[in-house]
Amino acid sequence: MSGLAIETNQLTKRFGDVLAVVNVNLCVKQGEIYGFLGLNGAGKTTTIRALLGMIRPSSGDVKVLGEYIDPNGRGPWGRVGYMVESPSAYPELTVHENLEIARRLHGISNKGATSHVIERLALSSYAHRKAGTLSTGNLQRLGLARALLHQPELIILDEPANGLDPAGVVEIRELLASLAQDKGVTIFISSHILTEVDRLATRIGIIHKGRLIQELDAEKFEKRRAKRLAIKTRNLEAALVCLRSAGYKPVVQEGILLVDNEHAIEHPDEIAEILVNAGTPPMRLTVEQQDLEEYFLQLTGDAK
């Protein structure tokens, strides 16, 4: 065993003239929570499908849990749980029946596994409801239940928070974190929403236009994302003058004063004091961090 749960080597996938994924070299260590970030259409799902042997790479290779993924091979699928794209289920079958199918196809002899995972994903009250009548959030839970049913060593999730309400997002995040911490499960999670991943992931990979443009520890990523102080005040001109005279270089954007000075970000209380003393107290003072879109633009130089 290499110690790597996922390893891709120059993974490339072409659909006709479209290069969906280009020379992607992923390394996900066992026990890691890997956040795979990218905007819609960046190549996340194509990469995940290649990891799961659903599509054949145009070039390069994929190794999952130490096994090369080949359409002709059997694959390590008994040890991998996954959810790709939008959740799906047989609509005329109940939640329990959908999971029973998954249990049997995974070769799990313990019949209690289905009830256990239903309980774990808080689906008990929907167990005998037809999947076609479920809300998107509960369908998402059903998809997650199917991914966790066989207690896999590696869980690959594509945008798992889609359709979940905020409480559900937190609940799933905690569940995944506990699986990683307590059981050493490796989690590979993709998202186009940064905040979904940055509180969970220990390592982050960023894919843009099919290329893995950055791979770094979550802490480093946090530090690299630019922060700024956003100030809302009644007298914008007066605030601008007083901050400039204090040595800052604020800019105005859509009626908000933005200061990217490190000292100001670290000490917003001092900025508040300056504004109060100048007779233009702040109505709102917040430290904002670059979102994923802005970070991409900065990283790829696509900024206008």
Binding site: G53, M54, E85, S88, L105
Partner: peptide
């Protein structure tokens, strides 16, 4: 049409069996 094909592709049960 039910988008369930993807749930049949990476399982210990082979695609041939399905």
């Amino acid at each position: 049409t039910d988008r369930t094909a993807k749930e049949l592709l990476a399982l210990p049960t082979s695609r041939e069996a399905i």
